[in-house]
Amino acid sequence: MTDRPGDASDEDELDAEALSWAGDEERGVAPPGARARREQRGADPDGLGEPEADGSAPEADEPPPPSPGRTVATAVFVVVYLLITVGWVMSVQRTASGSTELLVEISWQFGEFLAMASGVLAFGTVFSLTRRSATLVSVGWWLLGALLLVPWPILLLLYGEAR
């Protein structure tokens, strides 16, 4: 047993050595200690992944396995965004541009198509860009997206019919 200062870093190196196999680096497998240290660095401010300073892609290592909390949050928001998408599909079926001009009609159809796709796009964007962030960051972005994308046209139509 030695308590000399500076032993901590030596021990870290020994741990990393003990927890890895020869050839791991060539195969791109990081020892558990390195992965833990990478996770401890924390999430970036906006939570949408960690951009590199030179604009290149973030390091191509595998994201950490999802925690049970993240899995539950993902499942909940899959259902929420599925409902949003169904709501927009129903909205689009029951609204019309009311114009006979071709350009207006094309623009309207394009907008409707994007509105139908908005739920899937928002969920996918948050899912793919916040994989390495804290679960709360993903939940925050998913919540913001869900609030912005509430399909008001169909909700108002159903409310009007119910009255």
Binding site: P51, G55, W88, G111, L114, A115, S118, L121, V150
Partner: peptide, 25 residues
């Protein structure tokens, strides 16, 4: 900003879709 082109494109498409959804709302 300072993200790969694919991420920027994804963010722009999502924002455009959200803009159209909000316009309909």
């Amino acid at each position: 900003r300072r993200r790969p082109l694919m991420h920027r494109a994804l963010l722009l498409v999502t924002a455009l879709a959200a803009a159209h959804a909000l316009a309909l709302s």
